[in-house]
Design a protein around this nucleic acid. Structure first.
Lengths: 211, 211
DNA sequence: CTAAAATCAGTAATTATTTCTCGAATGAAG
DNA sequence: CTTCATTCGAGAAATAATTACTGATTTTAG
């Protein structure tokens, strides 16, 4: 029902891929889908797809496959995307603004309520309909509004500071975009979303291809 | 000298982390560093760090560790970050703009030369000092300027189209930010930088923690 | 000069992840 | 009704990644 407790990171990262595909399939009117079909879209192994789906608690029927709509629901449920999580964002630079302007987070269960910045010139602005507040208001608002997620889009050298502030205010999870090693207390979730990691894979592949 | 040929994705993704740390260490004036120290910053296993560094072709001396500057150079060389790669970006939305405005790509060997967009209203603008050109100019310019990297920041339903255009123009690698399964011909490199994957890990961890 | 501690480097063991294999179920075709 | 092809599901095997172990090396301390 709830899906397995300890699912691997790799599986977790493939689930959104399946989800996007399933939504497209659903929009096209198909009601059933097989792991074979999903796998072929991504050049994955069908068994891998089946195991991934199994992890969410979904089950299919032989020869037919999975019903698309319940499968979508199960995956979203498993990822926690059916219920919105409120979040605060710290650091209204380019990346911060991009995230603030990203409409689709709603679909992914993420609701960025407000943004914070150190720079007084940025405070007071509205960025994509969201208010930019001074950092010193952060702590009180996190507590009062029971915010669980802090998104960190400040420069690397200010990242730990921003994280510490969010954590001490009571945030349960940090989504960090700064390229700096972050330390957090036991029990707080840290997820790093670092473009440089992805870029590293690309440029390494490219240079070894070119030489 | 050149580092091993087939290095795992996991290793490749840890290297930028080490690099950022090493640059900080270097800025603080330290000339030597041990794997033990690097590992402790990230709570990694020291052996893992040693193997990762080994993959770049670096070598250290017993009891002392690695010299910081040559190590930085080796990692950057291995990642292909010492020589700039020219890139075109397609899709000047929020994410596109964030990438265009990101100064630090220069450090990572990425040089975004120009941006392209379908929308005539966006064409002609300058986004962060870079010109926004109409899509129909893309093909010719890729060829003429020998652009190797295409960055795709269009909506999901236009992603394959944008990729096809870039690939047929001769781009060797695609850095895709759109949440859609992309098909590319053999020999072209595809690297997906999808925030939703990272978010999925976070929200799943958070919901299983909260329930 | 010797002993001790720290670290690299190479190898082995462990663990995690992916892929393969097989039996049962189901619908379609003849 | 029987046969066939497809798929799920469960477990086994294979592969990949991480972690542990051992010996060699080098500095520091006594």
């Amino acid at each position: 029902m709830l899906g397995k407790p300890g699912v691997s990171r790799s599986t977790l990262k493939r689930l959104p891929l399946y989800l996007h595909l399933l939504e497209r399939i659903s929009a096209e009117g198909d009601e059933m889908v097989s792991c074979t079909r999903i796998a072929s879209e991504f050049d994955f192994d069908p068994t891998q797809v089946r195991k991934d789906l199994e992890a969410t608690g979904a089950s299919g029927t032989a020869r037919i496959g999975f019903r698309v709509s319940p499968l979508i629901f199960r995956i979203r449920e498993f990822l926690g995307w059916n219920n919105a999580h409120d979040a605060f964002l710290v650091g209204v630079g380019n990346m911060g603004k991009a995230l603030l302007g990203y409409q689709d987070f709603e679909k992914y269960g993420l609701n960025i309520i407000a943004a914070f910045d150190k720079d007084p010139r940025k405070v007071g602005e509205k960025a994509f309909g969201k208010e930019v507040l001074p950092l010193k208001k952060l702590e009180g608002l996190v507590r009062r509004m029971h915010i669980n997620i802090g998104i960190v889009t400040v420069p690397a050298d200010q990242a730990q500071e921003a994280v510490d502030l969010l954590v001490s205010a009571g945030v349960k999870a940090i989504w960090n975009f700064a390229p700096a090693p972050i330390r957090i207390p036991e029990g707080v979730i840290l997820e790093n979303a670092r473009l440089t990691q992805s870029l590293a894979v690309l440029t390494n592949n490219l240079t070894s291809k070119l030489r």
